[in-house]
């Protein structure tokens, strides 16, 4: 069925004088009857007015619109999400990741206190911070915290969206965060407020820009061999 759509794709802004010619090209090819019928319709429509020529584009819309319908129900809070809710926090549950770990979104202003609860509460005891990772979602930056418990051997994932590229530092909770947050600042430019020594760690101290951001561009031509 795509024949007529293809012609439409090639000439998105069809003018009345050009469409008949495209229709002739269609008709001259050995095409199935159905396609010929449709191309004839296109011809007729385009002769009427230029606005009508855009009509055949309409059938293309439904497959695009179907995609968002597949969304599942909003995930319910897991074990540690409920623990935080019981302590007066407002985490947004994000379901489980592909490894089966519970994920939740925290408000930046609640992050540090929620981490303290998760570290000290006997039900969670997340005393080891595995890593702090930054993620650039193009619209916003995100900090991802993977926690581990050396008592219960469980893991949990916390996420927090940076507001104006700022997040509270969790160094008072885990000293591991010292270097990990410096790395995230270095590569993503997320400023961790309250960090004792926030400076570049992997890149040279005079580096300009934050290299892991998606919109980062290498200005030095000698360095772009990688993208060839």
């Amino acid at each position: 069925m795509s024949n007529e759509n293809e012609t439409d794709n090639k000439q998105p802004s069809v003018e009345g004088s050009e469409t008949p010619s495209s229709g002739e090209v269609e008709a001259s090819k050995p095409v199935p009857k159905k396609a010929v019928k449709k191309s004839a319709e296109v011809k007729a429509a385009s002769e009427g007015s230029s606005e009508a020529a855009e009509k055949p584009a309409a059938p293309k819309a439904p497959p695009k619109a179907e995609a968002p319908k597949e969304e599942a129900l909003p995930p319910s809070p897991g074990k540690y999400g409920e623990l935080l809710i019981a302590n007066g926090f407002h985490p947004t549950p994000l379901g489980n990741d592909n490894g089966g770990l519970e994920m939740m979104q925290l408000k930046p202003e609640e992050l540090r206190d929620a981490c303290l609860i998760l570290r000290d509460n006997p039900a969670s005891q997340f005393d080891l911070l595995i890593s702090v990772s930054g993620v650039d979602w193009k619209t916003h930056l995100e900090g991802v915290y993977h926690l581990y418990s050396t008592k219960t051997f469980d893991k949990v994932v916390l996420k927090a969206t940076a507001v104006e590229d700022k997040l509270p530092s969790v160094v008072p909770v885990w000293l591991t965060a010292d270097w990990h947050e410096r790395e995230t600042y270095d590569l993503y430019g997320i400023v961790f407020e309250g960090h004792p020594n926030l400076k570049r760690i992997l890149m040279p101290s005079d580096w300009i820009g934050f290299p892991m951001r998606k919109d980062y561009q290498v200005l030095d031509e000698r360095l772009v061999w990688n993208e060839r």
């Binding site: 990741d97 592909n98 490894g99 595995i130 890593s131 993977h146 581990y148 994932v157």
Partner: peptide
Amino acid sequence: TYKPPKGETMTT
């Protein structure tokens, strides 16, 4: 040509 589906995880 392999295209993995959307997802995220961490393995340690």
